[in-house]
Design a binder for these strands. Structure first.
Lengths: 231, 231
DNA sequence: ACACGGATGGCACTCAGTGCGCTTCCAACG
DNA sequence: CGTTGGAAGCGCACTGAGTGCCATCCGTGT
């Protein structure tokens, strides 16, 4: 693996210390390198811009995701596969909960960081869309479906991720993301392999759903989930 | 209305002339203001940053969209409403096809402009999501559904918009966007005005699904889709 | 010991963006 | 008609991010 450059970590630590105690815009590169005890030029050797120091591991995570998708064969259901790919991002956030929460609070109030985060998220979305475009090749409206599903997966993932970050990492991130992605899968793809709802084992227990044709699919699913005693 | 500041238009014209003939990054603010014959400081009075001159009318369009959504009552179906709101953006692009195509080519190759465009699109998406959150208030997973649907609408709109821009404005932008948004509506909301799937009007037409509890969720949905005659 | 290559530091430079004070112009008001 | 007050524009100096270039340091192989 990439050996460990202690300088990079030192820069991240120094940067976050200053960002948290005096704010992002109030901290200059010179402040960071002075605290880290390195030369100014070295900062830009490890991070192409000031924003990059806030997202030090997304580049690696994006590489992981593209690798994960590139080894996918046809045996996996496409929507399921991109949902699993999205979970890789969650895993990265979950490896350092306190760091993630601190960063969340930072990006929430600094417009420049929010904009940068968007470009990072966009690259994840394009990776998912590219994979789906490949799987949907030849299908009618394949690229449209790929783009829409990728966007929906990212939105669901982010919705759950932000809810978890707002709880200071107290809630169960995995469960929240599973639930959110489950919604997308019921809307677009074949449902998940292990459904999120608990499975009762009583074979006599039956549910009857009646729906007029013309009702939207999500309403039907919602009725069924309610009948199953979800939530 | 805002009277017309000729200076603003002169700056946009000068900027695009230089951007097209020598590239965005190769053009400095001083070049622009020199060509426009105005002071450097005046540029930043009309545009807070160099990127803003590339998207001179998005601020107004975003205001139009929020206004459009804020006057919406409960008489409109929510998903239909946000699709109509998205069409406002298309209309703006369609008012100046050649300008839009030039800008598209510019943003396609300049990473900084792509990033800025993302933040613009993000604000549209948040406007749609905020509206849907209001309409879905109280509904189970209301904010999740709002975020996902807003993202899907934006993705579909952008897919069609880009396809139109790539055709140099030759194709029918409205038809492409209608088609793309129709896909989202069939997935999430009530079917579009001219539904993609034929709608039976017989009110007696009902579907009864019987499922033993314990069956996996995907089997249930599969049964329902089959009963609806989908796919 | 010496040569070499990668990692680092120092320095000067460009350019985006900001704060401030000055001029200019126009319009309302006496 | 003259004054005044505010908005629009201009000039200038300054900060800070990001870059190119070259000197330096250090570990390694010969």
């Amino acid at each position: 693996m990439s050996s460990k450059p202690p300088m990079r970590d030192a820069l991240v630590a120094a940067a976050f210390q200053l960002f948290l105690e005096r704010g992002y815009e109030q901290t200059t590169i010179d402040d960071i390198v002075a605290l880290a005890g390195v030369g100014r030029r070295s900062f830009f050797r490890y991070f192409p811009s000031k924003e990059d120091v806030v997202f030090p591991d997304h580049e690696r995570c994006l590489a992981d995701m593209t690798a994960f998708l590139s080894v996918s064969g046809d045996e996996h259901e496409p929507v399921q596969r991109v949902c699993d790919a999205a979970r890789l991002v969650l895993r990265m956030y979950n490896e350092n909960p306190t760091f993630s929460v601190q960063r969340y609070r930072l990006t929430k109030k600094v417009p420049g960081l929010r904009a940068y985060e968007l470009s990072v998220v966009w690259r994840y979305e394009r990776a998912l869309a590219a994979y789906l475009r490949g799987r949907f090749a030849g299908r009618r409206d394949g690229t449209l479906q790929a783009d829409v599903i990728a966007a929906a997966v990212v939105a669901a993932h982010n919705n759950a991720l932000r809810s978890w970050l707002r709880s200071d990492g107290q809630r169960d991130a995995g469960a929240e993301v599973d639930h959110a992605l489950g919604y997308v899968q019921t809307a677009f793809g074949h449902p998940p392999a292990q459904p999120a709802v608990e499975q009762r084992q009583d074979p006599e227990d039956v549910v009857v759903v009646v729906s007029r044709r013309g009702a939207p699919m999500w309403r039907v699913v919602q009725e069924i989930e309610a009948a199953f005693g979800r939530d």
